[in-house]
Amino acid sequence: MELISDIKCFGGKQLRYKHQSVVNQCEMVFSIFLPPQCDERLVPVIYWLSGLTCTDENFVTKAGAQRYAAEHGVAIVCPDTSPRGNNVPDDKEGAYDFGLGAGFYVNASQEPFNQHYQMYDYVVSELPKLIRQTFPVSGKASIMGHSMGGHGALTIALKNTEQYLSVSAFAPICSPMHCPWGEKALTNYLSSDIASWFEYDASELLKVANLYLPMLIDQGSDDSFLKEQLKPHYLLNVADAVHYPLKYREQPGYDHSYYFIASFIGEHIQFHASYLYGISDKSPVLI
């Protein structure tokens, strides 16, 4: 790894690194906030997945999360949203909703994207291993994200319930199988065979969930993408049918921006910290 930046923040350190990714076959960049408690002990970690067009830096500079992470003694890891580099294929028309900046946290199987776009394996396996080997973090982890990253956080958590203690999302894409963003990404990264899409759709994964992970979702009522792209009713209908006790909050007047995230990020970090530190009496249970 190569250190890009090291900045003191709320008694801790906001760090940025680049490294060669084996699964994505390119150089990847990630950011990590280490709270001041790292000077004394190992701390649990929260993984943050960002949305379309973002990099690892959007959350770091806009969400104001470091203050709360320092208060609760948790590290926050922010990977990039896609592979990067001259040899990494992009959307043919340079559109913002596919290709660079839009990896959708899937393992691509379609050429030419299958060589580099293995973001699912990167987030689930390669990056956490690197984090555990390099930084003073414990084996306890949670995951959260926004929009495309909310989709990533929900699907990754639902498929890896043994790896995370809790999951949360801001304005997640709740059923990519049923929205333009998701249909485009899944068709090009996977195939036109809809059967291959199910494992990357949170609403479908919730139908077969056999373990309840604490789940918090915030959605702004004035989000311009709410009806066409995000479609939380798919997830809520499934949760009701299978009695999955997720906590869904519609926040009146909020949009899709980082102003929305900054308004509630403290509550999300507190939510995760309660499980990472065993404060909450509600643990993952079989359903």
Rank of each mutant, 00 (worst) to 15 (best):
38 C>P: 01
19 H>N: 08
264 F>L: 00
254 Y>D: 09
65 A>M: 04
185 A>W: 07
65 A>W: 01
121 D>V: 12
113 F>T: 00
258 Y>T: 00
99 G>N: 08
287 I>N: 08
236 L>N: 15
88 V>A: 11
229 Q>G: 12
56 D>F: 02
101 G>Y: 11
12 G>T: 01
24 N>H: 12
265 I>C: 03
131 I>E: 02
215 M>H: 10
44 P>Q: 02
271 F>R: 02
264 F>S: 03
147 S>C: 11
251 Q>A: 06
44 P>G: 14
100 L>D: 14
30 F>D: 04
40 E>R: 09
201 D>F: 05
98 F>Y: 13
32 I>L: 00
117 Y>P: 03
250 E>R: 15
118 Q>A: 14
9 C>A: 13
124 V>D: 03
147 S>Q: 04
208 V>I: 12
274 S>F: 13
229 Q>L: 14
102 A>N: 14
153 A>Y: 12
275 Y>R: 15
89 P>G: 05
182 G>K: 08
35 P>K: 01
255 D>C: 01
68 Y>C: 08
213 L>H: 00
7 I>K: 10
2 E>G: 14
104 F>G: 07
145 G>F: 14
113 F>D: 02
29 V>S: 14
57 E>S: 09
178 H>N: 13
284 P>D: 03
58 N>W: 10
138 S>K: 01
34 L>N: 03
119 M>Q: 07
231 K>V: 04
282 K>G: 15
263 S>I: 04
232 P>L: 07
84 R>K: 10
240 D>T: 12
111 E>N: 15
236 L>I: 15
62 K>H: 11
146 H>T: 11
106 V>T: 11
201 D>V: 07
87 N>Q: 09
32 I>Q: 00
38 C>S: 07
153 A>I: 12
85 G>K: 00
122 Y>V: 04
8 K>M: 13
146 H>R: 09
78 C>P: 06
73 G>T: 06
125 S>I: 05
27 E>S: 15
139 G>Q: 11
195 A>C: 14
66 Q>W: 00
279 I>G: 09
12 G>C: 07
2 E>R: 08
275 Y>D: 05
243 H>P: 02
107 N>P: 01
108 A>K: 11
209 A>G: 06
35 P>Y: 04
194 I>P: 09
216 L>I: 01
248 Y>I: 08
210 N>D: 12
268 H>C: 06
32 I>K: 04
83 P>V: 00
154 L>N: 09
173 I>M: 10
